[in-house]
Amino acid sequence: MKKYLTIFRISWQRELEYRFNFALGRLRSIVVLLLLYSIWHTLASTTGTFAGYTQRELITYVLGANILRSIVFGAQARSVAAEINDGTFSTYLVKPVNHFLFVFFRELAQRSISTVSAVIEVALFSFLVDARIFLQVDWRWMTLFVVTTCLALVLYSLLNYTINLIAFWSREAMGPKFLFDWFLEFSSGAYFPMDILGAGLFVAFASLPFFYLLFFPIGVYLGRYTGWQVAGGIAMQAVWIGIVAHVARFVWARGLMRFTGEGI
């Protein structure tokens, strides 16, 4: 475990090395926040509710999604695919590390910095626009929220890792990753609560793993589910983690057989 913590520490320092780019990157995030806040604030301002959400719930959803994106998605890294394609991946094969854990801790450093930054941004933004946020004070819902968020983080890391492994078969892994990222953004509820969609579309998206990455944890935070629904959701997260972990292991094993170290 010590070596993974070292990876975390080194990655943390590296992330903070390019501070100007980091600051500009976070500024981009504020612009997205402003857009989403303005949309939902406008829609709910007339009657105080919209699509079954109170204005406070909608604003909390938007601001919460911004923080949760930093925790769960991080920078949606494509480094694994790039390393496989340029051959630098070979160096990991001779290191006494589990590659998935190596990548997980490397990205966890970036996620941690982004999350701290996102929390500050959201707090500052809320203060500036006088946003009314729903604060969950019931420790049971907060505990369930933390559990669902941790499971979402693991599920996303496995999904992202597996997609990156496409690079074993093709030098063209960036296009599929781009497609995956955008599909993920929308089908996870990063931009809007999924239940504003029609019933048919909602059911279709709910059957995908992405549904459990943002929409479900935020719903838990807002206390919009019954105890049984939360239990069912957590069970679905665990099932998806199991399925994707098996797929990742299979793809990894097959991919290694094809890897030629091209580009070293």
Binding site: E172, M174, G175, P176, F178, E185, F186, Y191
Partner: peptide
Amino acid sequence: SRIDSATFLLGKLIRFGFFLLL
């Protein structure tokens, strides 16, 4: 690089379509 091109185009269409859907 046909796979990259096709998936990039599909990704752009999905982004475009989802906002329209929103």
